[in-house]
Design a protein around this nucleic acid. Structure first.
Lengths: 213, 213
DNA sequence: CGGGATCCCTTAGGATACTG
DNA sequence: CAGTATCCTAAGGGATCCCG
């Protein structure tokens, strides 16, 4: 038996053998946002050594979770259909971890992809379905995200576009999402800075993206 | 920053820092069945070195996932409320892994706890709710499980009791659950051996516990 | 005995440099 | 830019021992 197998016949051990190695689920997380190049993955996982990234990509391919795909002269990595079925796993893990995130430390960064998945984690489709379609522009230190909510559907993309509310925020945005901080308090305390648009829409944002401890 | 942290501020990295180490989620899986002693955990994870088990138990305690509890002179480990919230994660992972389990290899064992969680993974409450309450006795090489389904509720326990259908099966039971094998075929091919009770109830079992690839 | 701790070895992970 | 190659450290693995 391979040294790193668990010697058990069960669904969870099988899953852990496929995606239980260090870094693997973080790679999957970023690929859930969209296909990514090697360098993009490396940039999204700042502390991953390049040899480990290369190893994990090969293992995930062998496991049938991701595939290499040529895109007009460059190689991108993308999830296979089986890999995409990990979305509930990643969202459940993200929701669980989100609840005890605490305050960010200086060396902890936020990437566009990680923030996108955190937003998906906190998204409440049933609440959003009862609210008017809204587009938010969010600036998280350097990463601009365009967040479009339309009924029960959520689309997060990089870059900007026409929005109903544009704001800038740091990692403390978590306190708004967890309900620890009301929208107006988030503005007055400087956790969120409204850049343009109707500032009252931040309350709608907080209702739409909500995850309580 | 601690060497094994990911240097990112996101829900998923936080989760991976708490329960992403090797063996950790398998310990959680077994504790989702019930409190367990050190030796019981070791027996359920046959390949875990005892120093690793001891280390993980300490880490999971520090993370607030499990706690040591004295139970009439012996120590048991049990999940904290926060640890119990990992159930959706473990079930989602189990369902995902179950789909590609393939055939068991000789050295792969099934434990009562792993089988219990696999059954929970495959359990369909909405289907069960439409069927009469049923008790099954299942013998998986040495491990006897009493499986009681009552409406949308499932209770799996060790040992036996009065049942409507008792059967013995090996790891190939997976092929019944995945729908690859119909109930009557499972009996005629010897995948399942009916020990007592109404053999037609095996079909109900297969409807209740079902997970397709 | 259950519940670990210790020892020694192997292998994966991490940091950095290098190459097609 | 997309990875290899190398070297070193630290974690995992297996056996054994210890202690209440």
């Amino acid at each position: 038996m391979a040294a790193r197998e668990y010697g058990q016949y069960s669904g969870i051990t099988r899953a852990m053998e496929l995606v239980g190695e260090r870094w693997a689920l973080l790679i999957v997380r970023d690929l859930l946002v969209g296909p990514r190049r090697y360098g993009e993955l490396a940039a999204g996982l700042p502390r991953i050594p390049s040899n480990i990234l290369a190893t994990r990509l090969k293992e995930l391919q062998a496991a049938g979770v991701i595939r290499r795909a040529p895109r007009s002269r460059v190689i991108v990595y993308e999830l296979t259909p089986y890999g995409r079925e990990l979305e509930p796993v990643v969202l459940a893990l993200g929701a669980w971890g989100f609840k005890t995130m605490g305050d960010p430390r200086a060396e902890q960064i936020i990437t566009p992809d990680s923030m996108t998945m955190d937003l998906r984690t906190a998204f409440r489709p049933t609440v959003a379905a009862m609210l008017p379609a809204t587009a938010y522009g969010a600036r998280f230190d350097g990463a601009d995200l365009l967040i479009r909510v339309d009924g029960p559907r959520l689309a997060v993309s990089r870059g900007d576009g026409p929005v109903d509310l544009a704001f800038a925020a740091g990692p403390d945005i978590r306190r708004l999402i967890s309900g620890e901080l009301a929208a107006d308090r988030a503005i007055t305390t400087g956790v969120v800075t409204v850049l343009s648009g109707r500032r009252d829409l931040l309350d709608r944002f907080a209702s739409t993206f909500h995850l309580v401890a």
